[in-house]
Design a protein around this nucleic acid. Structure first.
Lengths: 130, 130
DNA sequence: TGCGATACCTAGCACTGTTATGTATAATGG
DNA sequence: CCATTATACATAACAGTGCTAGGTATCGCA
């Protein structure tokens, strides 16, 4: 499926950070991982990904190091930083706000399934004050 | 909450089309509706909204007509077109693909909460090897 | 009279994905 | 042995778009 430019722009950073948050990776592998995670629906180009990686590195959200594959190929591995994790958290919060808002407009179907918490939980594992 | 530029760009079109899909409206009212729908989290500026409306009109997704408020103020009302509804459907599909993908990565970070209870929970406070 | 809310509009800036192109190596198939 | 594909990284020019900052105007209220 073709994803619009704007949606790609909005999702590329949190997706890359999320992938790196699961473990170090490199450009080509990230492209394949995105395709895999989306069930083949999202197809990124390398010309779009590399500038994203360079920008994230410039901002200090990820750090690069050169490494070698089993076959001897040079690879540039990226690792998420503490700053990157904080940024990812912020992006996730924003994404959820927007997603919730949009689903609110779309979904007259969606029923809020709020459940009143029990007045007295069966197990008081962490009482306040401790 | 501050929503990033990219996320705003990606969500502005489907949000505007969704609001107009619920009924005709005009610029200033759309701004208030977005704030209301998001629970006050999304604050659009008019300088951002009007170009969006003009673009959607140029693309044929909405149609404008001048009207009058109860007080005699001039208002530019917008109505969604058939083309606009089709575009909205397409945007929703894309949004869902991306959202599902992102939730997939985020979910993998969290610990899976399987129904299978631990064999001896009380005694497994420390993993083997300690 | 002054102020905030209502109601619309636009120019220039900065950022970013797309497209196209370049470089190089390893594996595969004929 | 050679051609093709996959792997692996990089950048320049282009086009689209929100943001900032500014402008115009009416209405209700104190």
């Amino acid at each position: 499926m073709e994803i619009s430019k704007d949606l790609t722009a909005a999702s590329s950073t949190p997706i890359v950070l999320s992938i790196l948050n699961d473990g170090d990776s490199y450009g080509y592998a990230i492209l394949k991982r995105v395709r895999e995670l989306s069930g083949g629906e999202i197809e990124w180009t390398d010309g779009m990904l590399y500038p994203v990686l360079h920008r994230l590195e410039r901002l200090g959200h990820i750090k690069a190091r050169w490494g070698e594959s089993e076959t001897g190929r040079q690879r540039k591995y990226y690792r998420i930083t503490a700053s990157g994790r904080a940024h990812l958290d912020e992006e996730r919060r924003q994404w959820k706000v927007v997603n919730t808002t949009m689903r609110g407009i779309w979904g007259s179907i969606q029923v809020a399934f709020t459940r009143t918490p029990p007045a007295r939980p069966l197990l008081l594992l962490a009482p306040q004050g401790i």
